Simulated scan of single mutants.
Amino acid sequence: MDRECIAMELPPMPYYITIGLSAFRPGEQHPSRRRLGIFDLLWVVKGTLFIGEDDRQWEVGRGQTLLLLPDRYHYPVKACETETVFYWIHFDFNGSWQQESDEKAIIAVPGRQIWANPYTIRIPQYASPPDFPLAERHLHKMLADSNQHRSAAFWNEQQLFLELLRLLEEKHPGIDVTPALRLAHRTEAYLRQHYQTQVTNSTLAEALHFHPNYIVRCMKEMYQCTPMEYLHEYRLEQAKLLLIKTEWPVAQIAEQTGFQHAPYFSNCFKQYAGISPLRFRKQYSP
């Protein structure tokens, strides 16, 4: 099984454009296209589609999906041998994306943009989703909605499209299965839940029941930072929000975000944001 996935850093969200259903008779084949400019997600419901992208080739059979990339050359490897039917979804994504091996997936640390709730979705380029029957029902509904007036179908189509992406990500066998990635996720969740308290590598190891060196190694492998670096940045991101959403004094915000001393918090904040907490707040004041 192909183990490549397409990693998309959110926000923004992928944007659904349109859906179609194509049927090829024996001897017919997928057209060649170069640099389509949008993503093309194929869902084969009957037969086998023989298709290539640059120097890679696939046989996409019933119950399988293939994601064709916007900046590549797509071409038929050979004609269909039996009747082949597949849904295709065109969607756009204006954010940062890359092709990567799922075993080497890297997760971003908290973003420096205060409005962001960063997440990286990983869509397998070639997959056999276990919930394909559910996906096929969604595809059928999306195709039916596409014949309605745009304003009536828009929200249903976008919702079903995101549900299809969720099915692909959740059921991809290479995602979220390695011990290192599982522990990194657990560490991240613990740090977010306890950032207001005094967390150390020792208390983290005691809570997660792993040696602190192993926790650090997993976090650096998956998040490219240590747990304490992650915690420090997350606390400062929370402080940004409190500076904007409340009128609390700086000392109270420091305490609420896990900093023991206000002067130390102010110094850390200035190093991180480039300005003092009070100047940061003033930027968003009327």
Rank of each mutant, 00 (worst) to 15 (best):
P26T: 05
Q159A: 14
F50I: 02
P118E: 06
E169L: 01
A189C: 03
Y73V: 06
T200Q: 06
A23V: 13
K141N: 10
P249H: 10
Q148F: 13
T84A: 04
I89M: 12
I275W: 03
K46D: 12
L242Q: 13
Y234G: 02
R33I: 12
N94Y: 01
Q256R: 13
L69N: 08
W97H: 13
G258E: 13
D131K: 11
R137K: 14
G95F: 06
S128V: 10
P11D: 09
S22P: 02
Q159N: 13
P124F: 02
I123A: 02
G174Y: 10
L66T: 01
R35T: 07
E229T: 02
Q252V: 11
L66Q: 02
C268S: 15
F93T: 03
I106E: 15
A127Y: 14
A184W: 02
L21Y: 10
F154A: 08
V44L: 09
R34A: 02
L167Y: 11
F269I: 08
H232R: 15
F280E: 11
L204R: 05
I51P: 04
E59F: 06
H194Y: 14
A207D: 12
D102L: 09
H149S: 10
W88E: 12
R166P: 00
C80T: 13
S32D: 11
L49N: 05
F132G: 03
L134M: 11
A7Q: 14
A251Q: 13
Q158R: 14
L162H: 15
Y234C: 04
C80R: 03
A184M: 04
F24C: 05
Y16Q: 05
V77G: 02
H185K: 13
L236K: 01
A180R: 05
L10H: 06
S202E: 15
Y234Q: 01
F280V: 04
V45L: 07
T120V: 11
K171F: 12
Y264V: 12
A79C: 03
V109W: 09
Q256D: 11
I275E: 15
L208K: 01
F86Y: 15
Q260F: 07
P110A: 01
D54R: 05
L243I: 04
P118Y: 01
L21E: 05
N147I: 05
N201T: 09
F39N: 10
G111C: 11
H90I: 00
G274M: 07
Q29W: 08
Q256H: 14
Y126H: 14
W97K: 06
R35C: 07
P129G: 02
L139M: 06
M142W: 08
G61R: 07
R182I: 14
Q159E: 14
L67Q: 03
A135N: 06
M219K: 01
Q159S: 14
L41Y: 15
F39Y: 15
L10P: 09
T65Y: 08
K78I: 00
I38S: 11
Y264C: 06
Y190K: 05
L242E: 10
Q113W: 08
W43R: 00
R56P: 02
I215G: 06
R25G: 00
E83N: 07
